[in-house]
Amino acid sequence: MNSDNSYKSFILHSCLLRIMDHLKSLHYDECHWLYLKELSGGVYFQTDWQRQTLKFRLCPDIRVEIEVHPSGRSSTVDVNIDNCAQVLSIRAWYPNLDDPVVYKWEYGNPCKLKKEDEDWITDINMLNALERALEDIMKSYNCSF
């Protein structure tokens, strides 16, 4: 294993774990709207280190996949998780619909959250962007179904 691979894996795994922990903390917060649902058989999250993704399900039944493109800006994740990712793609599938809605958070000056490739919110950190995107996904679901 060369050090580049080791480093890239470290950043990727750190990001996935931090996002997972953040989602759990929102699920546990009784005042927060986010509520996770099991994927199947007692499993709440799936991680695919080859595709660099984290999968989970929002209640009532929205499948979400987050793809992380790790960056090379950090050697630790304790300080600022934003330094660990270049792009975060958030894809959500509503029940009975094949095509996902897509959001993207991009690192930059300032960091941006895009909705279906259009700039939506600027100057937003990664975990806030994730939360805003999921909230928007839930709002659209409640309006449409």
């Binding site: 795994h13 499993v43 304790d78």
Partner: peptide, 15 residues
Amino acid sequence: KLKIFLPIPPKKLHG
């Protein structure tokens, strides 16, 4: 295979 295996990263990589 079940996609439920994520190596837990240490706080930092000492190299």
